[in-house]
Simulated scan of single mutants.
Amino acid sequence: MRMSPRIPALAVAGVLAAASLTACGGDSTSASGDKNDSVKIMVGGLDKVIYLPAMLTERLGYFKDEHVAVQLLTEPAGVQAETALVSGDVQGTVGFYDHTLDLQVKGKHVESVVQFSHAPGEVEMVSNKAAGDIGSAKDFKGKKLGVTGLGSSTDFLTKYLAVKNGVQTSEFTPVAVGAGQTFISALQQGSIQGGMTTDPTVATILDKKLGKILIDMRTPEGSKQALGGLYPSSSLYMQTDWVNDHKATVQKLVNAFVKTLKWMSTHSADEIAAKMPADYAQGGGAALYAQSIKNTLPMFTTDGVMPPDGPATVERVLKAFNPNLKNADVDLSKTYTTEFVKKAN
Rank of each mutant, 00 (worst) to 15 (best):
T83G: 01
V79A: 10
V94P: 02
D98W: 12
Y97T: 09
L103F: 10
E75K: 13
L103V: 11
D98I: 13
D102W: 08
Q91T: 09
V90W: 03
D102I: 05
T93I: 07
A84H: 03
L101D: 02
A77R: 14
V86K: 12
H99R: 02
T100R: 03
F96R: 07
S87A: 15
D89F: 03
T100A: 05
A81M: 05
L103K: 12
A77Y: 15
A84T: 02
D102F: 07
T93K: 03
G95V: 08
G92P: 04
E82R: 06
A81D: 00
A77W: 15
Q91F: 07
A81F: 02
L101F: 08
Y97E: 06
Q91S: 14
L101K: 02
V86E: 10
L85N: 00
Q91I: 11
D102P: 02
E82F: 02
G88A: 14
T83I: 06
V90P: 04
P76R: 15
V79D: 04
V79I: 15
Q80F: 10
A84E: 04
L85K: 01
A81P: 06
L103T: 11
V79G: 02
D89N: 13
T93V: 12
G88W: 08
V90C: 05
G78T: 01
A84V: 00
A81C: 08
G95M: 07
D102R: 06
L103W: 10
G92Y: 02
D98N: 13
L101V: 03
T74P: 08
L103Q: 12
L85T: 02
F96G: 13
Q80Y: 12
Y97H: 08
P76Y: 15
F96P: 10
T74F: 02
L85G: 00
A84S: 12
L101R: 01
L85H: 01
T100S: 05
T100Q: 04
G92N: 03
G88Q: 09
A77L: 14
V94R: 00
H99S: 09
E82D: 14
S87H: 13
V90F: 04
Q80V: 07
L101E: 06
T100C: 06
T93C: 10
A77N: 14
Q80G: 11
V94L: 06
L101A: 06
D98Q: 13
D98A: 15
T83D: 01
D102S: 07
T100D: 03
L103S: 07
Q91D: 10
E82Q: 11
T100V: 03
Y97V: 07
A77H: 14
G88L: 08
Y97F: 12
Q80D: 12
V86C: 11
T83N: 03
G78I: 00
Q80K: 13
V86I: 15
F96H: 13
G78A: 06
G88E: 09
L103H: 09
F96E: 11
F96L: 08
E75S: 14
T93R: 01
V79W: 07
E82K: 09
A84W: 00
S87D: 15
G95Y: 04
V79H: 08
A84Q: 05
E75F: 09
Y97S: 07
S87F: 12
E82V: 10
Q80N: 14
V86P: 08
L103I: 08
H99C: 04
Y97W: 05
E75P: 09
H99Y: 13
E75D: 12
T93Y: 00
P76N: 15
V94E: 04
T100F: 02
A81T: 03
Y97L: 03
